[in-house]
């Protein structure tokens, strides 16, 4: 399990995160919510060691991150980044790069790596694209290939930074369903989301961030009852029980009063 304790981090000497303590538990989907600039993406980067910590600590299965090499971190946690390049390579080749943390000299992918990469592509429903160039794929298909690359890393924890942004509703739901499946397999899945109703409906636990702090963390029900969404996002959160489970929607606060 990966956990942070009183974590401080930021850019160019300015702390964006200010004392975040959070555990990413195996077997659950944790959604990170918060207004723009509150430090959600910064938290993921700090946990993965992509930016310098200025205080606190990050532990991987009890081991301080500082004791782990970059490859050892990559064997424990995968990261689906927010901004993604589109190289002119095939989908299979792209997914094979997920095996890079396990390569040793002369750094050639073997049969086992190909099998894992193909299995990851099949997992996201992209097996038929393996020989197509990534640039030829639609946004949703490309997102699937990137996710397959993260899956090919075969890590205990997967961090996804805004994985549903720019996706149509079908691909959004497919992405969330994959996240749920991964959690059922015992992995920790951490998603940065802007869609509050989607997060409340699909996640096991919600962490709400505000100004670099953790404003609240709990089950969707606890978050709904706490009123933290209303306070942090300046909206009015509503819920209704439907045959498809409890559904959420947000309205402007002034219209609510």
């Amino acid at each position: 399990m990966i956990e942070t304790n009183d974590l401080f981090a930021g850019y160019r000497g300015e702390d964006i995160l200010r004392g975040v303590s959070l555990a990413f538990r195996p077997g659950e989907v944790l959604a990170l919510l918060g207004p723009n600039g509150c430090g959600k993406s910064t938290l993921l980067k700090a946990v993965l060691g992509l930016i310098e910590r200025t205080g606190g600590e990050v532990r991987y299965d009890g081991v301080p991150m500082a004791r782990l090499s970059r490859k050892e971190i990559a064997q424990r946690a995968a990261f689906l980044t927010q901004s993604r390049t589109t190289p002119v390579i095939t989908a299979l080749r792209m997914v094979l790069h997920g095996r890079f943390p396990y390569l040793s000299y002369p750094r050639r992918y073997g049969k086992a790596d190909y099998a894992i990469a193909r299995s990851a592509l099949a997992r996201v429903g992209a097996a038929q694209y393996e020989d197509r160039n990534v640039g030829e794929l639609s946004g949703g298909q490309r997102q699937g290939v990137y996710l397959a690359m993260a899956l090919a890393q075969q890590t205990q924890t997967i961090f996804m930074d805004e994985p549903t942004t720019f996706l149509d509703i079908e691909h959004q739901l497919s992405m969330m369903e994959t996240a749920r499946e991964l959690a059922r397999e015992g992995r920790a899945v951490v998603l940065v989301l802007h869609d509050i109703p989607l997060a409340l409906r699909m996640a096991d636990r919600i962490a709400v961030m505000q100004d670099g702090h953790l404003a609240a963390c709990g089950t969707p029900q606890e978050i709904e009852n706490s009123g933290v969404i209303d306070a942090v996002f300046h909206v009015a959160l509503h819920a209704a029980d439907t045959p498809h489970g409890r559904q959420y929607y947000c309205m402007p606060q002034e219209e609510d009063s």
Binding site: K45, L48, G49, L50, S69, R70, K71, E72, I73, A74, Q75, A77, A78, F79, T81, S83, R84, T85, P87, I89, H97, G98, F100, P101, L103, P106, R107, Q153
Partner: peptide
């Protein structure tokens, strides 16, 4: 000899780092 690393680097700095480069 650094061809493999260059391909990883071409994915962008953050992705490359998260893949262990």
């Amino acid at each position: 000899t650094l061809a493999q690393q260059m391909d990883i680097l071409a994915l962008g700095t953050q992705t490359a780092q998260s893949l262990g480069l």
